[in-house]
Design a binder for these strands. Structure first.
Lengths: 170, 170
DNA sequence: GAAAGATATTTTAGGCTTAAAATAATTTCT
DNA sequence: AGAAATTATTTTAAGCCTAAAATATCTTTC
């Protein structure tokens, strides 16, 4: 929508060192990725609410446990969901209160709590997951299988690159 | 990590209608997109905090205003940021309190408030934006320019597809 | 085996977020 | 003009989220 920006005839070195602000392509890419994700995420959130009266964080937490029937510690959950420890504590608390989760201290290490889905939690999650999978499929229905795989590969590369650039920070 | 899944020789119609659960590719794609975005977002959030003691939502709001020097109403901000109205009210309130934003009722329509950056807000944002742009460039530094453009195009297509599938909902 | 350090979780304080209800102002329809 | 509907914003209640400090437990080191 902003025409074609001039190809910046200045040589690369100057651009990189003296004009550190010349990274518009990456910035646009990031904003588009964020928009796309937020759009889909908001849709999922609303549909989970309308159809199952559940929040996205609770759904995500249950999804992690469903992938690992043996159960996970709070720390493992926190790491896999990429959220803080205290956050997981609170969400688990709610789900335990709803009878969807089981939480018991590990016998070997009394610091850790192992969390898993109850029978009710499993059957509730299965229903939600089936609907969720269909919503997501509809979300990407304009993309061919090949495009989906290209996108997957490029996101994989972006993820690796991002992790590297964060590197020493986390 | 799970070998190559069979190319599903079943015709598309059958797949879509009779086997609504067979959409693992799209699900993996969505999860990867979410992971990638969350990873980058968490990095940006921490660096904004460490370097400028500012939160990501406040930075995002200022970015919207910087793109539109004439100012925006709260409703426009809410729409562009894809967050709720009440949320914008609260964030604007904080930024006005910090002297970074100016908020005044519109002369034509006394319901609306027009918000814009103050001189302090502009100069503060410029500094943050320059650093942010470099962080983002570093985040994607493993991707070639061509890969970046491919990713941009595919995300554009995904965005359109997602909007269509949400369509009547919002 | 006791002190020091590391690890797992919870608590706390502050901030973001939403949906829904409430206010306030404008527009539309008789 | 006056009533009804619409639009813009704020408020409210509940929940998510983080960083940092506090607790409790385990491990290591001397």
């Amino acid at each position: 929508m902003e025409g074609s920006s001039p190809p910046a005839p200045i040589d690369r070195e100057t651009t990189a060192t003296l004009r550190p602000g010349d990274h518009k392509t990456e910035l646009r890419l990031w904003l588009r990725m964020l928009t796309c994700t937020t759009l889909i995420e908001n849709g999922v959130r609303r549909r989970l609410r309308d159809a199952f009266d559940v929040t996205l964080p609770r759904f995500d937490l249950m999804a992690q446990l469903h992938k690992t029937p043996a159960g996970l510690t709070l720390g493992e959950l926190s790491q896999r969901m990429m959220v803080s420890n205290g956050n997981v504590t609170a969400i688990v608390e709610k789900l335990v209160g709803q009878g969807l989760l089981d939480r018991k201290p590990s016998p070997q290490d009394r610091r850790t709590q192992v969390v898993s889905l109850t029978a009710d939690g499993r059957s509730t999650f299965s229903q939600m997951a089936a609907a969720h999978e269909n919503w997501i499929a509809a979300t990407f229905s304009d993309l061919s299988r090949e495009e989906e795989e290209q996108l997957m590969a490029l996101l994989g590369k972006a993820k690796t690159s991002a992790r590297k650039s964060l590197g020493d920070l986390s």
